[in-house]
Amino acid sequence: MDPVVLAAGSALVSAMATDGWQQARAAVVEWWRSRRPDRADEVGSDLEAVRAQVLAARDQGDEDTEQALAGVWRLRLQQLAGEDPALVDELRLLLAERLAPVSSDSEQAQNHPIVMKAEARDSSRVYLAGRDQHITGS
């Protein structure tokens, strides 16, 4: 799954529990309407239903339910992006401009996509890590 889609799905569900939810919701529905106008109202209703579940899960400390709901939205976004790969760049903008700003600092750090690319030639080595890395030997 595309890292932008992963981050956007997580940020969307995280935004549901913030004061900026209405702005984030409006941005997502507007974005969806411009891509699939026939489904935008349904998406808006679905977002409100999921928000109620997210708030209940947070009240109960149920992180598993919140993660499962984020997974559902990741899949929906992935399906849309699969139909039109150019939407990933638009989704990246939606994430950066409308979803990430309403998330807490810790959630922003978790939802920021990181893409690492490397190329090794001849006998060179490349080491990539998302966090700590310990290399022993030669």
Rank of each mutant, 00 (worst) to 15 (best):
W31L: 06
L55I: 09
P3K: 08
L6W: 09
V88F: 04
T136A: 11
T136M: 11
Q67I: 00
A17D: 05
A8C: 10
V72S: 11
A129C: 03
D105F: 10
Q53H: 11
D89T: 06
R33W: 08
D41A: 15
A86D: 15
M16L: 10
R33T: 06
A56Y: 06
P37W: 01
G20D: 04
W21C: 01
W21G: 05
W32H: 13
L80R: 07
Q78F: 11
S104N: 07
L75Q: 14
A56Q: 12
L80C: 08
S34P: 01
L93E: 14
A11Y: 06
M16Q: 12
K117S: 14
D38K: 13
L94W: 04
E90K: 07
Q53V: 07
D132T: 15
L69A: 09
A8W: 08
A49I: 08
L6P: 00
V29P: 04
L93P: 00
M16N: 11
W73E: 10
E83G: 13
R125T: 13
V88R: 02
P85T: 04
S124M: 05
L87I: 04
E48Y: 05
S103Y: 06
L12D: 09
L75A: 15
R25F: 00
D46W: 07
Q22W: 10
R39W: 10
A129P: 02
H112C: 12
A120I: 12
R33I: 05
S34C: 05
R98H: 06
L91D: 00
A56H: 08
D132S: 15
D2H: 14
W31F: 15
A17Q: 01
D41S: 12
G44A: 01
A11Q: 05
W21V: 05
V72G: 10
A129D: 02
Q67E: 13
Q79G: 15
D59V: 05
P37E: 06
S45R: 14
P37A: 04
L77S: 05
Q78I: 06
Q22C: 08
P3I: 08
L128G: 10
V29M: 03
V72P: 00
S14L: 12
R39I: 11
P113C: 03
S34H: 07
R25C: 07
D105C: 08
V5W: 09
V43I: 14
L94Q: 02
I114F: 09
V29F: 01
L91T: 03
A17Y: 04
G82F: 03
P85D: 00
S106Y: 10
A40V: 00
T65Y: 02
Q53F: 05
L128Q: 13
Q78N: 13
D46K: 11
